[in-house]
Design a protein around this nucleic acid. Sequence first.
DNA 1: AGACTGGCTTAGAGGCGATAAGGAACCATA
DNA 2: TATGGTTCCTTATCGCCTCTAAGCCAGTCT
Lengths: 233, 233
Amino acid sequence: MAAEAGSRRQRLRRATLQEIHTAARSLLVEQGSAAVTINAVARQVGMSGPALYHYYAGHDALVGAVTADFFHELATAMEHARDAHAAAPVGERILAVCRAMRAWARTHPAEFGWIFASPIASPNRQPDSDRHQAGQRFEHVLLDLTVELWRTRPFPVPEPADLPESLREQLVAYSAGIDGRLPPGAAHVFLSCWTRLYGLLCMEVLHQLDFAYSDLEPVFEECLRDLADVLDL
Amino acid sequence: MAAEAGSRRQRLRRATLQEIHTAARSLLVEQGSAAVTINAVARQVGMSGPALYHYYAGHDALVGAVTADFFHELATAMEHARDAHAAAPVGERILAVCRAMRAWARTHPAEFGWIFASPIASPNRQPDSDRHQAGQRFEHVLLDLTVELWRTRPFPVPEPADLPESLREQLVAYSAGIDGRLPPGAAHVFLSCWTRLYGLLCMEVLHQLDFAYSDLEPVFEECLRDLADVLDL
DNA sequence: AGACTGGCTTAGAGGCGATAAGGAACCATA
DNA sequence: TATGGTTCCTTATCGCCTCTAAGCCAGTCT
């Protein structure tokens, strides 16, 4: 809560940054991602044009900062769902977090779509950016729960020998990247679940399933049942 | 092959349209989707600016036409894979078509990403557009094969009574939309498979899995094994 | 008091989508 | 063959965009 630290100038600057983010978000929600321009945001904040360059290096930087905000908010929503069921078994917490993820996506469709539809265009994303760190925080909510599940109630995993070699190598690398908290086989199960879950949400938000479904809630619940099956919940 | 029909003017117009599409595509591939602007395309074609408005009503129309091209090319690639295995059992044809889909996506990443990353932003897409029809053609390749599989070698489907009511209603509507060629239960299996397959490809192309995988080929093959399992191939 | 810094302004270059107005080639028909 | 309509293309222009440059002004530091 020591949010008001720093000199007067720093406090003012933080307030302005906050205002910029709010303006950008309202433009996104009300008029779509194309409306989030430097000029429009500045206009909404009350300063004119180039002043925004004192806060962000350019349009891309602003977009990245706002995206990081969204990732943090989504991660927070998921963490809240997790902590609201702190006493429940890990499996229930995982399901609650998944539902919270979709709930946030449904209540904030513009923001959720923005997260990967808007900035995906850019090819090489530097790994030290705010956006990247925020994305990692988001990803780690479910990863951490899966680690806990793995430690307390291990789920069935494929024999590493049954996996094709190229896949095994990638899984070993990923396992090392998360400090070995999941062995390659368990990492494979986790990534499969993640891919199905996130992929389904991705397609829902990008309206790739509108040709068949008008409400994906039961589809999502069925997906969760599949995951519960795989994770032996 | 009667591609040269029509008056001289019509032929010239078709040639120019072709040239416009090629220019737009090369801009997309070489410089990214943001580079596909009316002015840049016109410049590349050799005419200047507003001349393009004699061919397309605006930027959106051009984007839509190019997208339709991509859908047609992808659908053609899948149909070729299907017809190359015309003698094989349906199951093998389905797998061949899925692999052809990913192969096209891998050899044309910019185009495949463009298909749903670029034009998804637009909210209401009129259902009679070229783009929409081309997308339908693409979707129908696998749908038709699934229908054939269902007729010749029906796969296990859930009891309709086991499905939640809201899902059942949507499936009934979708089944009617495809002229009942698949009953709701079979449609559900088909849509599940489609969602997993297309969702995986979507995430691969949008680089949502780069944090874990560098080469998704074995992951895709495992997904295909799952589908073969579900479809009882 | 003076110098520095940060926050802001306007001016402007260059590119974008889109419209308007007009010239030139083509084509059909009286 | 002359005339008029259609088609293709041009330049000019508007308003918006990103981003840079130059400069003003008020707090802040020494």
